[in-house]
């Protein structure tokens, strides 16, 4: 299954599930990455990490490692 970390620049995806075993999973949910939400990768930092996603009308930057716990449909 594709994760948010594998999105290309400008690509959108719909969140299917959040990997609950990841230590940051709860915080990721709390900032708004929940199943069903449409997210878009809108910026990539200079060293390809962190990634900035559009979610629920705002931009949230998270590390690639954390983005990999966001599973897409």
């Amino acid at each position: 299954m594709k994760t948010a970390a594998e999105l290309k620049f400008g690509e959108t995806g719909i969140i299917g599930d959040i990997d609950a075993s990841h230590p940051s999973s709860r915080r990721i949910l709390e900032v708004g990455f929940t199943p069903g939400q449409v997210i878009q990768l809108i910026n990539i930092s200079a060293f390809n990490d962190p990634l900035a996603f559009s979610v629920r009308g705002t931009i949230i930057a998270i590390r690639k490692n954390e983005a990999s716990c966001i599973k897409l449909i």
Binding site: P23, R27, V31, P50, T58, I59, A61, E66
Partner: peptide, 11 residues
């Protein structure tokens, strides 16, 4: 040790 970077980029 639980490094994390989750930050809102405000408008």
């Amino acid at each position: 040790d639980r490094s994390s970077f989750i930050l809102e980029l405000p408008a």
